[in-house]
């Protein structure tokens, strides 16, 4: 057996755990193979437990373990970094908990916070740039680790309660679907809930829309007074949160 075939068959054995897949390695390898398989599964389980501590607290250790088993069987790791392995876990939870959408949303929040933690280092916009900008034509460049998570439930409130070691609220659907803005402030990942209008505004500006165009669209949608106020409030909050890294003329 050449090396490429040996490695493919070993990989198949690790993933499928079928005795027939171990046959090519001989009877004397049986005990050792079981150790490699245990290491493989334990490594992935530890990775998911470490990555989704609050989701585990929310659904309970036994249910979380069942979700891990399901995920490990369904999703083989492919990246050189274990940091990539948790990325599909919210999707697995969404399949396992179709009538409890807060479970997958809570996991997605944990994942986004972890990604923000190791995202690129970018300086927030300097005060001089804000003062000297020509706001009639600038486009805002948002920090690269800014993430927008669609939210239909109170998963953020559940996360906050668990982080504060308080009793979490009952799961509930939001009155209207919104989003969570997730980013890193200095070295600390943060999030806040935003409404659909602000989510849309950020998406449009990420796509290259100028701030002046955003203001004009808002005026058209909600009237001059409210549109200008809203745009000014959002901009002030984005700058205060450190979400903007540069202004492009």
């Amino acid at each position: 057996m050449n090396l490429a075939r040996l490695q493919r068959e070993f990989s198949t054995w690790l993933q499928a755990d079928k005795p027939a897949d171990a046959a090519p390695f001989g009877e004397r390898a049986r005990l050792g193979l079981a150790i490699y398989q245990n290491n493989f599964r334990a490594q992935l389980a530890t990775c998911l437990e470490d990555s989704f501590d609050k989701t585990r607290q929310w659904i309970g250790g036994e249910a979380f373990h069942e979700a891990i088993v399901h995920h490990v069987e369904r999703v083989p790791p492919s990246s050189w970094t274990l940091d990539a392995y948790p990325r599909d876990f919210p999707a697995t939870l969404a399949m396992l908990y179709p009538i409890d959408p807060e479970v997958a949303e809570l996991a997605a929040l944990e994942l986004a916070l972890a990604d923000a933690f190791v995202g690129p280092d970018v300086n927030r916009l300097a005060a001089e740039q804000i003062a000297s900008a020509d706001w009639d034509c600038v486009t805002l460049l948002f920090v690269p680790m800014l993430d927008l998570l669609p939210m239909t439930t109170n998963a953020a409130a559940i996360w906050t309660a668990l982080a504060e070691e308080a009793s979490p609220p009952m799961s509930a659907l939001l009155p209207t679907a919104g989003a969570l803005l997730v980013w890193r402030d200095g070295e600390t990942p943060r999030f806040r809930a935003i409404e659909a209008m602000e989510e849309r505004a950020i998406l449009l500006m990420r796509g290259g829309m100028t701030f002046a165009r955003l203001c004009a669209d808002l005026v058209e949608d909600v009237g001059e007074a409210e549109g200008v106020t809203l745009a000014g409030a959002w901009l002030g909050q984005w700058l205060a949160d450190g979400l903007v890294s540069d202004l492009i003329d």
């Binding site: 083989p76 790791p77 492919s78 274990l82």
Partner: peptide, 24 residues
């Protein structure tokens, strides 16, 4: 070896000590 055919085991898996493995 840890990866083969798009699968990554994240475990330090053993090699046969053959001439082919040595070349690789």
């Amino acid at each position: 070896w840890t990866q083969s055919g798009g699968f990554n085991s994240h475990d330090l898996l053993p090699l046969p000590y053959t001439q082919e493995a040595l070349d690789i």
